[in-house]
């Protein structure tokens, strides 16, 4: 106690210059990180600022960075040129359906891989894992042909079905299932549960953090998906938000930046807002994708 008090008063007694040096040695990182953070944030800041400018300001080299007057008119203008409500609904439907379907398929498959013994287990597991290496970008061409044969082009299911099985999710959940002590499933068997009962009453409640982490990653991925929905949709009734935004850019042919940036703000804000609110959860989820 006494020592601590002495130390504090000693610090106080130090000359100003060494107090500054001390403070600097503790916080020098901020001097490097703060400009970097501003650099990283600048595109987003630019989006929002531009969405509040007038068309003239954008092209005026003397106009400065900030809008002269906050011009909110770009937002209603954007909403009036494209059916953003429909896009939003489609995005929700597609992303939600993918998530639900994935949760079902990966839960069942992960349980089999984690707790059951069967022939060809290793081979099948490798095939599940290998799927990670073949994302839609690598196989979109033949998948497009297949969906065309199924007559699914320009429907919502076309944007869902290629993503129903997830090797990555199966792997994540299998790892989590294997962490559950086997005595718990023994206890559940004595309590009258079969395999599905154990899965539902014991495993799923216990791996909730993993399910949430996977859910977040899946939603972020498919909410933002561009290429595949672009290829399989050709009418507004089934388009998702990113496609709508891309279309807006095309129709405005790059000239109407204010309206485009208002649209961009609208499209990126739902996810960013959720991210800001549940920041910790999001960060944790992505943080642990790499650590088993």
């Amino acid at each position: 106690m006494d020592n601590a008090v002495n130390m504090v008063s000693a610090t106080r007694a130090l000359p100003l210059s060494s107090r500054v040096a001390r403070w600097f040695s503790k916080s020098w990182k901020h001097f490097i990180l703060t400009p970097l953070v501003l650099l990283w944030l600048s595109p987003m800041i630019w989006i929002v600022l531009t969405s509040l400018k007038t068309k003239v300001e954008v092209f005026d080299p003397d106009a400065g960075i900030l809008p002269a007057v906050l011009n909110f008119g770009n937002y209603p203008a954007t909403l009036s040129v494209a059916p953003f409500g429909t896009y939003l609904l489609n995005s929700v439907l597609v992303t939600g359906s993918i998530l639900i379907a994935q949760l079902v398929t990966i839960t069942l498959a992960a349980y089999a891989f984690a707790r059951l013994e069967f022939p060809l287990k290793r081979l099948l597991f490798s095939l599940f894992l290998l799927q990670v290496m073949f994302p839609i970008y690598a196989i979109f061409l033949t998948n497009f042909v297949t969906l065309r044969e199924f007559g699914l082009i320009n429907t919502l299911p076309a944007m869902i079905v290629p993503f129903v099985a997830s090797g990555y999710g199966t792997f994540m959940l299998r790892q989590a299932f294997r962490q559950v002590p086997s005595e718990l499933s023994d206890a559940a068997r004595l309590d009258g549960c079969g395999h599905l009962g154990i899965l539902w009453h014991v495993y799923l409640p216990l791996v909730q953090p993993t399910l949430i982490a996977f859910g977040i990653i899946s939603v972020v991925t498919h909410w933002n998906d561009y290429m595949w929905p672009l290829l399989v949709t050709n009418s507004d009734s089934v388009r998702t938000l990113p496609i709508g935004l891309g279309l807006l850019a095309k129709s405005d042919s790059g000239a109407d930046w204010t309206r485009l940036m208002a649209g961009t703000t609208l499209v990126v804000s739902p996810l960013l807002l959720v991210f800001v609110i549940f920041q910790r959860r999001f960060i944790d989820s992505f943080m642990h994708t790499g650590v088993k």
Partner: peptide, 21 residues
């Protein structure tokens, strides 16, 4: 969060903004 948020932005939006930038 400041370094991570670009991951949350759809590629199409990111691409467009950078065309502008």
């Amino acid at each position: 969060s400041a370094f991570f948020y670009p991951v949350m932005i759809p590629s199409v939006a990111a691409g467009m903004v950078w065309v502008f930038l």
